[in-house]
Amino acid sequence: MLMKVECRMLGWGLLMSTALLLTDCRRADEVDPQDENELITTVRLNFTEQGTTTVNTFEFRDPDGEGGNAPTRFDQIKLKPNTAYNLTVELLDESKTPVVDLTEEIDEKADEHLMVYTATPASLLTYTYGDKDSRNFPIGLTGTAQTGTAGMGKLKVQLRHQPPVNGTAVKNGTAAPGSDDVNLDFELIVE
């Protein structure tokens, strides 16, 4: 499928290109299934109130990736005030069959990834990292979220991709290096 024989060498010696028209091996109408690289189509936030097993799940979902159809789901995050939650995040590629769970891959490459949670106003929610990579920097796949007093605002969820530059690790625990793989402003309601 990937390495189809391409008859580029045919041009050699066959300058009479009318003849060449008839000898083309690969045709444009055989479209390659696109892109085996992963796509993040779904970001799922699981808030579990501490001391309970009640899981509140909020999701962003754009199954065909960027463009095409608009995202099918972009939930409002509704949380109780002054409550501690365990927060885990799942990142999925639902454009593939079967669905690819990218959370594991990010965990394996924890040295170059960082989840960042930023609430505005900041008083709505405080996030504390619950995991660490091999260099003792946070990852953010699990952690705790402590809500403040009731109010409305946004929760920005970012996945910073911070791969090494020229072989030197750049991840330093802050959001600055690298670029966004996820950058979503969830609506946040604490009531």
Binding site: L2, E6, R27, A28, V31, D32, D35, N37
Partner: peptide
């Protein structure tokens, strides 16, 4: 002319 694409979808194949 014909064009063959691989990878991230950007432009279609065409002739």
């Amino acid at each position: 002319q014909y064009n063959l694409m691989n990878g991230r979808p950007l432009i279609p194949n065409f002739d």
